[in-house]
Amino acid sequence: MWKQISAILVLVVMTLGAGCLGGLSPPAAVPPTIVPVEGASLDHLPVYTFPFEDGEETIRIGIDPAVYAGAKEADRRLHLYRDLSEEEWIPIYYQAFANDSHQEPFYANLIAAFREIRDREGLDDDRYLELVTAFVQSIPYRTDDSITEPKFPIETYGDGEGDCDDKSLLLAGLLAREGYRVALFYFGDEAHMAVGVGSAGCHYRNTPLAYIETTNASYVGIPPPVLSNGTVLASDPLVIPVGDGPRYYAACDQVMTIERALSVSRARVEALAPELGMRAGELEAEKEYIESLGARMAALSRSGEVREYNRLVPEYNRKARDYNDAVRSYNTLLEESRTTVDLYNHLVTHAHDRPGSYLRARAYLRE
């Protein structure tokens, strides 16, 4: 859940100057800005190790203590000099956090670390976007009760934690500077924020953008059916542009295959569960009957009642044969259920590895 937005409507009385130009009108809004605190220092810097594809990556950069301290001490309120609508002033507010010029060296250093991984691993634009996304998603989700407004991205990095708007601002700021078309999704009714990125397919609602959830590990282009607090995103978001570069996400066809495999595998497991339960009950009852019949036959054998014993032998053999066939059938279904559960769990827990998940999803759907 995001933190509140502070907006103040400032009433300004202007007087005309004596010069030929007259008075100057104030801007419509003055957003939050960072004023570096010279002489500031940092006690520690976080080191981020996070899963990506079939391995792990580590990010470690330095940040300017003066800028970090300035972000911490910034006035986070938006000062309005005109009565703007929410659709007008909310973008101004959030764009100020993402685009404060004092953060550009921070962005450059962090991007340099990502590019080193990109070049080493030979990542294309889709996998590179997923790398940056996996990093931001790995930052622990936590709300700082001492701050009632959003954080600047340099704060989120330096603090090693953030909530939905903090992490979304960081991701959007990074992707914008790497040339992606990117925006913030502002869900006012649900008090949530996510990121949208230009995409070929998997568009979110009435936008040309793919949804990215930043609060946890998830696939680009697959919005959550429900948030961790039980909230369902029912409203259309306010789209706040952050970057208008030419890069876009082109792996939506693979993401849709993963999403379909998730849906099909879950439905199959849910369908198998009652069937397995029913068969297990039948097998238990049949086993008890066979054991009872076997005990009766053993008693007949001990008492020398050979004729009655021989009469029951065909029934016992038939029951045992049917039981063994039923066990084999049950075990086949049980193995299918376990395999399907394993696939579903793998896809859910490996959102950081879209290429690998796609191969598994495709193989499952072709079976």
Rank of each mutant, 00 (worst) to 15 (best):
Q254C: 09
R366M: 13
Y68V: 14
D64G: 01
P153A: 00
L262I: 14
D189Y: 07
P241A: 03
Y186V: 13
T231N: 11
P91S: 15
D126S: 02
Y157K: 00
G62S: 12
S292C: 08
L80H: 03
D100R: 02
T214A: 09
N324C: 00
V197R: 02
R177K: 10
V255H: 09
Y330Q: 08
D125C: 05
Q4K: 04
L184H: 13
E155T: 13
V327S: 08
V132I: 02
G277F: 02
Y186D: 09
Q4G: 01
S337G: 06
I290F: 06
Y157E: 11
T49D: 03
N324P: 00
L365Q: 12
R76V: 03
P355S: 13
G230E: 08
S303C: 03
D100T: 05
D325W: 10
T33L: 13
T215S: 01
E73H: 10
T215R: 06
I92N: 01
E56A: 13
L84F: 08
D125I: 09
W89G: 11
Y323E: 04
L333Q: 14
G160D: 07
E56M: 12
L333I: 04
V13H: 12
D100P: 08
E335Q: 07
R247E: 06
G70I: 15
S263G: 03
A200D: 14
Q95V: 06
V37F: 14
D144H: 04
Q103L: 12
V226R: 12
V30Y: 10
Q103I: 06
A172S: 08
T15A: 15
V197C: 00
Y204C: 04
A251Y: 13
R205K: 11
A108K: 00
V10G: 07
P36Q: 10
P237D: 12
Y309W: 07
V12I: 15
E149L: 12
W2R: 06
A351C: 11
N310G: 08
L293A: 01
I5F: 11
D64Y: 05
L238D: 05
A261Y: 03
V182Y: 02
A194T: 02
V197E: 07
P31Q: 14
A66W: 07
Y157H: 06
